[in-house]
Write a protein that binds this DNA or RNA. Structure first.
Lengths: 344, 344
DNA sequence: TTGTAGGCGTTATCAT
DNA sequence: ATGATAACGCCTACAA
């Protein structure tokens, strides 16, 4: 058909390589897969034949015979705008790709919805990937259960409802929230509030817990708390709500705020600027992520650095290890660290 | 537990379905592929067997036999932070996925680099995908040539060096740049500048051309022009440069600015706010994209709406058509429209 | 309308 | 170390 004409010539096969090298298919196969147990001469001539013929193994055939797909699913939530708009995820994807490019696994992008009968679930359950990487996890994500029932999964971040056999890679959000808060405390702030992530996302909940722990330990009551939904718009709205409460006299003016993501901090900063409040003079702000936005706002954000790229790499690494039959640690916790700039 | 145990039972095969339905494999195959030329009874019993066995076709086997991979590559540039950080791309991906979910093609995420020998090129050249969708295109992207030499490609946006057999889906950027500028003119502005995209990206160049055309036609000299690189940070820097030129007396104060992306407009807006300039009072701003940021900034942006989601859908649609042996139009131009809000 | 048979490009299991 | 040979699960003439 005409599609073939468009696509160009079909690549060489194992068979052709074998013929050219004067060996059997088996030998070529061995060379391709690590080159063990072949004589130097055979190896040499096969390699030349491969180069000359520009041979590239056919994935389909390989998968069929080996019963491995060499494919890994990257499952992202339906809300792509939100997902792709967050620099945190961009870093994760980069990390995943980095690790995967050293293996011969492909990354399949799967946009999943909560709809039980959707194509994504069927696809994953159909044995079309060797494993899956899941990067969002609201409590409502019922598809997660279905996915992990059919293929090995590694989560980015602790799953909302963690089960004893869930593998995941995360940062210690409780500790990080605590570090951020303690830093604020150490700077002499005593009236400290927070803008949180959504209550159904563990990352948000954990950071809030760290925040509360640090305050409780210091014997200090928490200042205003508002949900910012991990978005810039949500952060701005949360900031506005806090301002309103203060202006209504329902709440004293806080002198510092722990904002659980840089994106939300950007939103909050804009609101504060418009309200004529100076950061950090009137209000100290500490963010979270150390994403590119942290240095693109003014003042540059003091924040908690999350090693997102490394998190992506680790996720891929753990999954690959499982697929290889090894037994990596079920939970991997990456360190987060304080980055001091100008906002607090 | 072992990897196999985790992965669950392997899915049923065509053969098993056939046995259960009391027909031959061919009949089952026919049912699976459209259900033509099978008796109602056979169809019915096969369908039941499929449901009962939760049969899902094995892609590898199907590919091997049909010589089609059922996979489409989404080729994104190495600079993932930039790519994923732009809402415009998020919309494109959503659109692509939307169309693809109605086909049985998978989306393979390929992060390409300019490195000639990289894995991505080999993969694409190895006949591992039926076609590719390419969404970024700097002049320097040599890999584009290699890709389109080996599989059918559809570009998002006019390729930097367009060739007569390149398929692409784009908006009419020249016309859109002209519309934006004419709107500014119609509002009585006479000293109009622009913040542009990078000079090696056609979208940026074309919008600038439209801008110049409109001005030339009106017999008005262009105001300040600065490259903003299609990023928020770049837009802010460009705005600062313009401000500096004005303050140095090298340039009169413009009364309106055509900013070639909403993201850059956000950066420019922040700089203006900090400089104490009011929008649109001191300076009218018109953006481009009508992405989510357009309404998240203050004032909300008057902008040009790009149907990005539809662009993604169209890209997938054109590629699918080519793969099916049909002959879709080589170039698809989508309409852009003016959206009036408060910034101009 | 239905079934039979051969083949798609690899891997894997045996011999040798 | 090397080479037959049989899968792997599906598609596709072709025959019935």
């Amino acid at each position: 058909m005409s599609a073939d004409a468009v696509a160009g010539r079909s690549p060489a096969t194992l068979e052709q390589v074998a013929a050219r090298a004067g060996v059997s298919r088996s030998t070529v196969s061995r060379v391709v897969n690590g080159g063990n147990r072949v004589s130097p001469e055979a190896l040499e001539s096969v390699q030349r034949a491969i180069a000359e013929l520009r041979y590239v193994p056919n994935r389909a055939a390989r998968s069929l015979a080996s019963r491995q797909t060499q494919a890994i699913a990257l499952v992202v939530p339906e809300d792509t705008t939100r997902f792709f708009g967050d620099p945190f995820f961009a870093a994760i994807v980069t990390g995943i790709n980095r690790r995967l490019s050293r293996s011969d696994h492909m990354l399949n992008l799967i946009i999943a919805s909560d709809d039980p009968g959707d194509k994504a679930s069927t696809f994953l359950a159909g044995g079309n990937v060797d494993g899956a990487l899941v990067v969002s996890h609201h409590t409502s994500d019922t598809y997660i259960d279905r996915i992990s029932a059919s293929v090995p999964v590694v989560f980015g971040g602790r799953p909302a409802r963690e089960r004893v056999d869930d593998y995941f890679v995360d940062v210690d959000n409780v500790a990080a929230g605590r570090v951020a808060t303690e830093y604020l405390l150490s700077r002499g702030h005593r009236r400290i509030g927070t803008i949180t992530g959504p209550p159904d996302m563990p990352a948000g909940v954990d950071r809030l817990t760290g925040f509360r722990d640090a305050l409780a330990e210091a014997g200090i009551a928490p200042g205003p708390v508002a949900d910012g939904d991990f978005t810039a718009v949500g952060g701005a709205a949360a900031m506005r709500r806090i301002l309103a409460r203060v202006e209504a006299g329902e709440e004293p003016w806080p002198d510092a705020l722990f904002v659980a993501s840089d994106l939300m901090a950007r939103g909050a900063l804009e609101v504060l600027a418009r309200a004529g409040r100076r950061v950090p003079h009137d209000l100290a702000i500490i963010g979270f992520d150390d994403s590119p936005v942290a240095t693109s706002v003014s003042p540059p954000l003091t924040t908690i650095r999350q090693p997102s790229l490394e998190q992506g790499e680790a996720m891929a690494d753990v999954l690959l290890a499982r697929l290889a039959g090894r037994t990596p640690p079920r939970v991997t916790i990456l360190p987060a660290e304080l980055v001091v700039r100008d906002s607090a």
